[in-house]
Design a binder for these strands. Sequence first.
DNA 1: GTCTATAGATTGATAGAC
DNA 2: GTCTATCAATCTATAGAC
Lengths: 189, 189
Amino acid sequence: MSATTRAQIVEAADRLFYEQGFEHTSFTAIAETVGISRGNFYYHFRTKDEILAAVIDFRIETTRDMLRQWAAETADPAQRIRRFIRIVLTNGADIREFGCPVGTLTAELAKLRHPSRPEAVALFTLFRDWLAGQFTALGHHPATADAMALHVLAFSQGVATLANAFGDDDFVRREVDRLEAWLAGGLTL
Amino acid sequence: MSATTRAQIVEAADRLFYEQGFEHTSFTAIAETVGISRGNFYYHFRTKDEILAAVIDFRIETTRDMLRQWAAETADPAQRIRRFIRIVLTNGADIREFGCPVGTLTAELAKLRHPSRPEAVALFTLFRDWLAGQFTALGHHPATADAMALHVLAFSQGVATLANAFGDDDFVRREVDRLEAWLAGGLTL
DNA sequence: GTCTATAGATTGATAGAC
DNA sequence: GTCTATCAATCTATAGAC
């Protein structure tokens, strides 16, 4: 079926872009992963940039679903924020090997001066706004809540980058504990 | 002169790798920047990987010089650490546009599974050990000092990634103030 | 040491048969 | 919708004249 093949392409490209980077991933690699010919490819996507756009849209959808899921699991904002903080543990193996999918894609597209870069940044904004919403629910003013959201995002990016570089699990655990203590304590910025 | 041409190639590649990424930077781009022909290129470097190795060596040298310079400017370990923390302000314009040169190169080489990746990580280690040395001088045990060094490194990577994504100067300033307060205060991990 | 010319492989993308 | 065959451009890398 057409929709299935298209979905297969998007999911394969999503994973390959994460593991190898956008530019380094060739049509050949995606086609081989899906098990179709390179020619068939162009029936579904006319350019590589179209695939990237589809992959980003796919990530935005799955991220929205994930955040909704987290919100459904608990009504406690602090617990929700903790869920985010612990991604670096939950996805520890992937992060050690390939870094954060959002951070590394955004950084690559910045260097390529790629037109889809704003959409990749929108992925960050999704987390940012969701986190800010939780801090607002904890009683903080919107501006403070946003600053706290960025602080948590910066934590995740810093930890992911160093986890990828050094592969040090103890470091990740320590930083998670530290930020959870900050969350349970004064939330000083 | 030969040495000069070689140095020119390394410096041009250093900048282009930072601005455009390693893989996206072609021999043509480097040759055009230096003002030599593509053919001449291969008299100085046989492969692209050799240029990368030379660029990393160059960065290691300049980083060593910079750390020595910082150490020469003040004997106060806290002041030295503050010098590092403020890089995200000092190099603010570049970081907003291209991210951290160490973090983005390390991340790219991880995805490419490039043989020179350990040498890129060694750049991180240079900062890590230097920072740990300062925390040790402040009276902390080696293991604690190293954990603090990683914490400061994670800060710089997180701030750099988000500064690159959002271009928000206020965020950077806030995070610098916060970490300097941590440094002046209890240094809680 | 620097150049021009070119090889050889790979890339993104197209045309047309089935 | 999927395939094979192919194009044009680009890339890394080489050969050989000056």
